[in-house]
Design a protein around this nucleic acid. Structure first.
Lengths: 190, 190
DNA sequence: CAGTTATAGTTGAGCGCTCAACAAGATGGC
DNA sequence: GCCATCTTGTTGAGCGCTCAACTATAACTG
C-alpha cells in the first residue's frame, strides 16, 4: 500500500522518447516563431495584436456585424474577462461599439463600426500574406492536409476547458469523492 | 477590373482558399488550446509560466547549469530584454543566480541553483504528462513524424528574425537606397 | 591612441492577459 | 411570490512581454 501510494501519487511520468522530444521542440519553436512573426506583422502594419484581429474577423463575418459578448468570447476562445478588456480598448479606438441588450438586461452586444471594418480591411492583406508565406508556401499539399488532421486531433483531445471549468472540476475532485450531485458547495467563492 | 487597380498596386493579396482557411483556423485553435492547456497546468502545479520552464530546462541541460545570458536568450528564442526580466524574477524566487563574467565585463552568467533544479524536477512530470496526453496520445506515429516535418518546414521558412534584426534590415534597406520594389507601399503608417 | 561602432545586459513605461471579486439580471424550486 | 443559484459582463491588481532608451564594455578604424 505504501509503495502504491507513492507510485500512484506521482502517477509515474511517461517521458517523451528522443523522437518525441525532437518533434515537440521543433513544434514549439515553429509555433513560437510563427506567432511572433504574425503578431509583429499585425502590430506593426495595422496597430493591433492578433487577438484583436480575430475579434474583428469574427464580428465582420457575423450577420449584422453584431454579436453578444458571450458568443464572441466563445468564438474567439477567450475568457469573458479578456474579451471585456479587449472590447473596451477597441471601443476606445472606435472599432467597436457596445450596446445593451433589451431582452436580457445583463447582456451586451458588440457592434463592428465602419472604422472597425476599415481597420480589418486594411489589415487583412498583409496578415494573409504573412500567413501564406510563412505556412502555406512552405508546405506541400499533403502536408497542409495532414496539418489540418493533426490540428483536429489535438483539438479533439482537449476538451474546451476554460479556467473556470478547470476550477470547478478541481473543486469537485478535492471535495472528497462523489460530488456527483453537481457543485453543492456555495462555490462561487472559489 | 477597376476594383483591382488598387490591389494590383499593392501586389494583390493571395487570399487563402477555403481549405487553407479551414486548416489555418483549426491550427490556430489547436495551438491556442494546447498553449492554454500547458500554460495553465504549469502555472497551477508548479507556479511558473511555460517561458520560465523552458529557461530552466535549457539551464539544466547545460554543462555546469550555467549559461551566458545571450546564449540563453537565443536558446529560448527570447529577446535579451525579456530574458533579463524573466531571470530577475526567477532570481527573486531563488531558482537562478546571476554572476558577472570575468573576461567580458559586460557579460553575465545565469546559474541554475539547487532550488531551481528542484523546481524543474518537480514540474517536469506533470508537464510531460500534459504534453503527452494532449499531443502524442492523440496522434498516430505517422502524424507525429509529419508534425516534425511540418514544423521544420515552417521553422525553415522563418528566418530567425528577432525584432532587432528586423529593424536593422529595415534600416539597411532605407540606408542603401537600393530598395527592392515592394518595400515602398507597405505603409508603416498606422 | 582617440573616435566610432557594435555588443551585453538592464530598465521603465505601457499593454494585454489572468485571476479573483463583484454587480446585477435571469432562472428554477417550492 | 421568495429564495438560492446560475449567468452575463465588468473591474482592479498583478504579471509577463514588447519597445525604446540607456549604461557600460569591447572591438574596429584610421
Amino acid at each position: 500500500m505504501m509503495v502504491d501510494m507513492d507510485e500512484a501519487r506521482r502517477h509515474e511520468p511517461r517521458w517523451l522518447s528522443d523522437d518525441e522530444q525532437r518533434v515537440w521542440r521543433a513544434f514549439r519553436e515553429a509555433v513560437g516563431m510563427l506567432n511572433a512573426h504574425t503578431e509583429t506583422q499585425l502590430q506593426h502594419d495595422a496597430g493591433m495584436p492578433q487577438a484583436y484581429y480575430e475579434v474583428l474577423v469574427e464580428l465582420s463575418e457575423s450577420p449584422d456585424q453584431v454579436m453578444r459578448m458571450s458568443d464572441l468570447a466563445v468564438a474567439t476562445r477567450s475568457s469573458r474577462s479578456r474579451l471585456s478588456h479587449a472590447v473596451a480598448r477597441m471601443e476606445a479606438k472606435g472599432w467597436v461599439r457596445r450596446e445593451a441588450c433589451p431582452t436580457d438586461k445583463r447582456g451586451a452586444f458588440a457592434h463592428l463600426t465602419p472604422a472597425g471594418f476599415e481597420a480589418i480591411k486594411a489589415a487583412a492583406p498583409g496578415h494573409v500574406e504573412a500567413v501564406r508565406t510563412a505556412v502555406f508556401d512552405q508546405l506541400t499539399a499533403e502536408q497542409v492536409r495532414m496539418l489540418g488532421e493533426i490540428s483536429d486531433a489535438i483539438r479533439g483531445g482537449l476538451r474546451p476547458r476554460c479556467p473556470e471549468v478547470e476550477r470547478r472540476l478541481a473543486a469537485e475532485d478535492g471535495d472528497t469523492a462523489d460530488g456527483d450531485g453537481d457543485g453543492d458547495d456555495t462555490g462561487r467563492a472559489a
